[in-house]
Write a protein that binds this DNA or RNA. Sequence first.
DNA 1: TGATACCGAACGAACGTTCGATCGGACAAT
DNA 2: ATTGTCCGATCGAACGTTCGTTCGGTATCA
Lengths: 214, 214
Amino acid sequence: MFGSSGGSGVATFESRGSYDARINRILEVATGVIARVGYERASMRVVAKAAGTSLAGLYHYFDSKEKMLFLIQFRTFNSLLNNLKEKLHGVEDPVRQLEVMVRSHMGYFAANMAALKVCSHELDSLAGEAYEQTRAIRREYYELTRGIVERVLDAAATAPALDRHVVTMSLFGMLNWLYRWYDPKRGRSPAVVADQIVSLFLHGIGAAAAAPAA
Amino acid sequence: MFGSSGGSGVATFESRGSYDARINRILEVATGVIARVGYERASMRVVAKAAGTSLAGLYHYFDSKEKMLFLIQFRTFNSLLNNLKEKLHGVEDPVRQLEVMVRSHMGYFAANMAALKVCSHELDSLAGEAYEQTRAIRREYYELTRGIVERVLDAAATAPALDRHVVTMSLFGMLNWLYRWYDPKRGRSPAVVADQIVSLFLHGIGAAAAAPAA
DNA sequence: TGATACCGAACGAACGTTCGATCGGACAAT
DNA sequence: ATTGTCCGATCGAACGTTCGTTCGGTATCA
């Protein structure tokens, strides 16, 4: 689906051969532009200029602007998911799994802020087949996380019956909103923020239980 | 800043006179269109058609498309903020204030989903003066909420030192992400979801404390 | 008589996309 | 070693569409 380098033989996913190196570079630049001004405002002319290509030259690598966005999102979600699966390997305790999930997500976010912003903010900019395909990966990421949340929830003597979907989505809300306010260069390090989110999610703000008012 | 109805005398903020009634209706329709397809894709022609006006007729009410978006956001943030201030009146206990804040936000969200979606998703579509003005109201809403969070935090014997900004933004993350997944017609009622978010924020998922792995 | 509400038609700009041509290296035939 | 041929990579220029906005005009009503 991805490869087909120039030259003779096999081409790995990574930038082997000049074709893959070039398309990776263009996607990287395009990701930055889209993250900065949004998908609709990111014209192909601006992307071309930023990537050091001509306008028509872009269409040698993508059928259309939408396919370009699709590639960005698909690759990013794929990396995110595989990254999580890998780090989850061998971790059994549900609470530990949750820690791994949040830290992994946060780490990927800090290292690829533009890409994750595009993935969080530009979800509905795809349609049809492209939309369905990214949706499928997102779903997988969601199910994986939800499983962890459920196991933590089951192991805990949680007083109020929390809706698992609400809880999982609240966790994603905290994580997916990061791109709106978090700046790794200002404020705390990604690792610290990740730990704080884990702590908040597990134990809350730590308030005394509230009884109904008189 | 808003009023200036036709006719002779005063005009309240609400739809007194046919001018205010008309502009309110148009803004309402425009909000729906923008929420559905996004600001950039929402052409003035489509908004005009949906509002039962001609394209040129829209410009009798707005200087530009951007001003239209500004009005939508400014009014919505204003209502949201005033609504919260009002409901907070007379409530002293920090934990109670937090409950009021989340329930108030959730209630407003459920009653005005399109408007809040536009406010959450289209934050960067404004520029210059219009952007600064909406930013100022958002800041006020943030400060109000952060004050509550800090008071709850101070009153609690919270084990890990939580960063107040991180915690407040995580709360906003949960709330502002709602438009991505929550459907009042499916799943639990707004009141129940609000209570679950409050519970999650105050006490977390309710897990046993995790010690460092061996 | 004049202001308000509204409209059809057009303008200029920007957009995504396409087309035809050129350049340069790989490779088989001479 | 030279030639001829092909193909991937790249480009300038253009096409058709859609966009936000403007302009001149027409009803309506105080």
